[in-house]
Design a protein around this nucleic acid. Sequence first.
DNA 1: CGTTGCATTGAGGAAAATCAAGTTGAGTGG
DNA 2: CCACTCAACTTGATTTTCCTCAATGCAACG
Lengths: 221, 221
Amino acid sequence: MPVGLNSHEIQKLGDVVSHKRKIPRGGYLHHTGTKFQSLFAIRSGFLKTCVLEQDGRQQVTGFHMTGELLGLDAISSEIHTCDAVALEDSEVCEIPFAKLEEISLTIPSLMHHFHKIMSREIVRDHGVMLLLGSMKAEERLATFLLNLSRRFSIRGYSEYSFNLRMTREEIGSYLGLKLETVSRAFSKLQDENIITVDNKHIQINDMNRLKLKMGNSSCVT
Amino acid sequence: MPVGLNSHEIQKLGDVVSHKRKIPRGGYLHHTGTKFQSLFAIRSGFLKTCVLEQDGRQQVTGFHMTGELLGLDAISSEIHTCDAVALEDSEVCEIPFAKLEEISLTIPSLMHHFHKIMSREIVRDHGVMLLLGSMKAEERLATFLLNLSRRFSIRGYSEYSFNLRMTREEIGSYLGLKLETVSRAFSKLQDENIITVDNKHIQINDMNRLKLKMGNSSCVT
DNA sequence: CGTTGCATTGAGGAAAATCAAGTTGAGTGG
DNA sequence: CCACTCAACTTGATTTTCCTCAATGCAACG
């Protein structure tokens, strides 16, 4: 699900365009409506992206961690279509997009890789659409936790024990649920001894049953 | 919202790679899991794309019309991640992706344009996520109708009167609703004289009020 | 030590799903 | 041409799920 670059690839880009930027917790990497010039590769930290509607409605469109690439949505109109906010102190590497396109003319594999990254983002979004369109609250949360677990695991952290960087409200926004519903879903999974929740700390006790929660709408409780 | 190419651009691509393919109503352009080799530019007709889950759940991820580009999701893994099915007799132009990448190395503007198209697809998906995550049934349907209306209008058809190519069930799948809910939402909009529904034929009687339906969750009846 | 933000939990209500008839309309074949 | 079939659609009744509102708990912080 995540849009990722491996460390080698990050370095490759870093050699060419290495302007770094630190974003403190709560700080904005970019705002909706501002001019797009660069993509951002996350070197460390954790960010969310969220879109706004005219009437104030808001939705978190993604949570992003080390190695992922931000700003792909802005290429089309050259205006950022979402806010990117750091959920913990983060560091990103700025990649001027014009430069990237210029370079990729001379390095076909880089261009190809970039196309794959954009495509992966589309696939990821389709996954979220499936989640939002056809899953119940508990299934959504299970899917979300498993996704986080996998991404932590890939980055060398425990897949069974991790800290959430976002609030219940942000999780709810991402999953199309209200924060109370998210909280209840956490409690229910805990009651069933599938996970242990301590505030932002999550411990997965039974990965298999958590996976069952995700896939099986008919097999409830 | 749609991923589009203008007729000039279609022609430009067509000059390079002009293998055409006809898909009869109900036929598949590609299946989930099959090898990806080409993008497809729609020359005429109307198609849907849908993703499947292991447990049989299915979701329509998009409806696609003339000028739009299909297959972007498959670039990342080189395997199609969705089915593409013709909802009416359609004609597509096959664009071997390797060839496209090769050519775009020599035509920077083509490459740039392609990046914009992929990016627009991401923005479109974010719009659908917002819809699925935060709108009520009636708002979803209004948004959907207005989107169709705009796309017909762009292609030279009436923005006020058109025929739906898809069933209520397919609309529901796309909007994250059951077909009965879609039907009720149609009836409600008709009762309010905002639209006239005659089976698959839709007439928009009051565009402004339809737009209000879309944006305003608080202003309900 | 009160304030503030975040989380949990309960009760009641609204929205949509589900279940269950009917209706319509486009073929199909007698 | 008419009866028949089948799929798609509409509508109503009931149930489920989630939202809303409200009270409370809890930890961090000035």
